[in-house]
């Protein structure tokens, strides 16, 4: 594997996670529990789609075969996506969404903080820019975790269940393979174990404040680095890709 090939894969991991989470969040459009939250969630969706665009465009430039951001988003199959397993989890109820977003945003926050000093100029610029946006996402979801966790018995039970059920998808965030090994050596990527310790701290701080219990690490789901996903990704992609697949090169 060349550095370029590794970098393309690295961009797709970040870009796909943003894209899939953005698509998930867009499903909340007009379904939010209150108007302010509907607007907040669609705003967050927009930020993620924007972040995905930068990374997918860059992957296309690096590849040099003329593939655009749209080609990457709309013309790849499930097994060619490298998004985190967490990002494709269904929205469920509002608490499920808040928990998923919190765990993913805390990851992005620490990832982008670290990548702001990547030796790859575009990755560094993208990280510095996106960090400003995910800071708001992290704060938004963390505040909701506290409100729900330290709320009524019902909200507490529900959000604790959300955390317990999604926990097995968090280990995947920190997995590494030879792509990481190569890019860490080049000063482009960051060692995921560094992110993990910072992520742990943020998660612990918020859960403690929310009076929620952090599940113990047990079996962790795996696969996204090889393009292996849960059954949910295929359905999400089917909806996301329907129009460009049915009407290739449609314009409006």
């Amino acid at each position: 594997m060349t550095t370029k090939e590794a970098l393309i894969n690295y961009c797709l991991r970040i870009g796909d996670t943003s894209l899939i989470l953005g698509q998930r969040m867009s499903e909340w459009c007009s379904n939010g529990p209150v108007l302010e939250e509907d607007i907040a969630m669609t705003n967050i969706a927009l930020d993620h789609i924007g972040q995905a665009r930068t990374m997918l465009t860059y992957a296309g430039v690096l590849e040099g075969k003329g593939r655009t951001e749209d080609d990457f988003a709309y013309k790849r199959n499930e097994r060619e996506f490298y998004n985190s397993l967490l990002s494709e989890r269904p929205n469920g109820h509002f608490g499920d969404t808040v928990v998923r977003n919190f765990l993913q945003s805390a990851y992005f926050y620490h990832l982008y903080t670290a990548l702001s000093s990547s030796k790859d100029e575009l990755i560094a610029a993208h990280a510095a820019k996106s960090l400003k946006e995910v800071t708001y996402h992290l704060r938004h979801s963390a505040e909701w975790i506290v409100r729900l966790g330290d709320g009524t018995d019902e909200s507490k039970n529900k959000v604790q269940t959300s955390i317990n059920e999604i926990w097995e998808y968090t280990g995947n965030l920190f997995e590494m393979n030879d792509v990481d090994t190569l890019l860490i050596k080049e000063g482009i990527a960051i060692n995921q174990t560094e992110i993990k310790s910072k992520w742990d701290k943020t998660v612990d701080e918020v859960l403690e404040r929310a009076k929620l219990i952090r599940p113990t690490d047990a079996y962790m789901q795996t696969g996204s680095l090889k393009g292996m996903h849960s059954e949910y990704l295929g359905h999400l992609i089917a909806e996301m890709q329907f129009l460009p697949r049915a009407y290739p090169d449609a314009k409006w």
Partner: peptide
């Protein structure tokens, strides 16, 4: 980053009052 103190004063553009409340970090755009 987390749990901002909210000490920032945002003045009402209509009546110039400093007695304002944040309703949501995410608005119309």
């Amino acid at each position: 980053v987390l749990f901002s103190s909210g000490s920032k004063v945002v003045k009402c553009p209509r009546c110039n009052s400093e007695n304002t409340t944040l309703k949501s970090q995410f608005g119309s755009t």
